[in-house]
Computed example of a mutant assay.
Amino acid sequence: MIRSAACAAALFTLAMPALAGPEAFQPGTVVPDYGKVFVPEGVSLPADTVMKVAFDIGEAGPADAISRRLETPARFLNMHAAAGVDPANLHVALVVHGAAGRDLMNEEARGAPNPNAGLIAELLAAGATIELCGQTSAMRDIAAEDLLPGITIGLSSMSTHAVLQQEGYTLNPF
Results as ranks from 00 to 15, higher is better:
Met1Thr: 08
Ile2Arg: 11
Ala5Val: 13
Cys7Leu: 15
Cys7Glu: 14
Ala10Met: 14
Leu11Asp: 11
Leu14His: 11
Leu14Asp: 05
Leu14Ile: 10
Leu14Tyr: 08
Met16Ser: 10
Pro17Thr: 08
Pro17Trp: 08
Pro17Ala: 08
Ala18Leu: 12
Leu19Asn: 02
Leu19Asp: 04
Leu19Glu: 05
Gly21Cys: 12
Pro22Cys: 09
Glu23Arg: 12
Ala24Thr: 15
Phe25Asp: 11
Gln26Pro: 00
Gln26Asp: 01
Pro27Ala: 05
Thr29Ser: 07
Val31Met: 03
Val31Trp: 02
Pro32Tyr: 05
Pro32Leu: 04
Pro32His: 07
Tyr34Trp: 15
Tyr34Gln: 09
Tyr34Ser: 08
Val39Ala: 02
Pro40Asn: 02
Leu45Ser: 00
Ala47Pro: 03
Asp48Gly: 03
Val50Ala: 01
Val50Gly: 00
Met51Val: 09
Val53Arg: 13
Ala54Ile: 03
Phe55Asp: 09
Phe55His: 09
Phe55Gln: 06
Asp56His: 13
Asp56Cys: 02
Ile57Lys: 02
Gly58Asn: 15
Glu59His: 13
Glu59Met: 13
Glu59Asp: 15
Gly61Thr: 13
Gly61Leu: 11
Pro62Asp: 15
Ala63Gln: 15
Ala63Asp: 15
Asp64Ser: 14
Ala65Tyr: 05
Ile66Asp: 04
Ser67Met: 10
Arg69Ala: 15
Arg69Glu: 15
Arg69His: 13
Thr72Gly: 03
Ala74Gln: 05
Ala74Phe: 04
Arg75Pro: 03
Arg75Lys: 14
Arg75Asp: 02
Phe76Ile: 02
Met79Leu: 12
Met79Ala: 15
His80Trp: 02
His80Phe: 05
Ala81Asn: 03
Ala81Val: 01
Ala82Asp: 00
Ala82Ser: 07
Ala83Asp: 00
Val85Asn: 00
Pro87Asn: 04
Pro87Tyr: 05
Leu90Tyr: 00
Ala93Phe: 01
Ala93Glu: 13
Leu94Ser: 12
Val95Asp: 12
Val96Leu: 06
Ala99Met: 14
Gly101Thr: 07
Gly101Leu: 05
Arg102Asp: 15
Leu104Gly: 10
Leu104His: 12
Leu104Phe: 09
Met105Glu: 14
Asn106Gln: 11
Glu108Gln: 14
Ala109Ser: 14
Arg110Thr: 02
Gly111Glu: 13
Pro115Ser: 12
Ala117Lys: 15
Gly118Ser: 13
Leu119Asn: 10
Glu122Arg: 09
Leu123Met: 03
Leu124Met: 06
Ala125Asn: 09
Gly127Leu: 10
Ile130Phe: 03
Glu131His: 05
Glu131Ser: 14
Glu131Thr: 15
Cys133Leu: 06
Gly134Glu: 04
Gln135Thr: 08
Ile142Phe: 09
Ile142Pro: 07
Ile142Glu: 09
Glu145Tyr: 05
Asp146Glu: 11
Asp146Tyr: 07
Leu147Phe: 06
Pro149Cys: 07
Gly150Ile: 07
Gly150Lys: 10
Ile151Arg: 10
Ile151Ala: 04
Thr152Val: 10
Gly154Thr: 08
Leu155Gly: 07
Leu155Tyr: 08
Ser156Trp: 10
Met158Phe: 14
Ser159Asp: 14
Ser159Ala: 15
Thr160Leu: 06
His161Ala: 06
Ala162Asp: 12
Gln166Leu: 12
Gln166Thr: 09
Gln166Phe: 04
Glu167Val: 02
Gly168Asp: 01
Tyr169Ala: 00
Tyr169Gln: 01
Tyr169Asn: 00
Thr170Trp: 06
Leu171Asn: 04
Asn172Met: 09
Pro173Cys: 03
Phe174Thr: 08
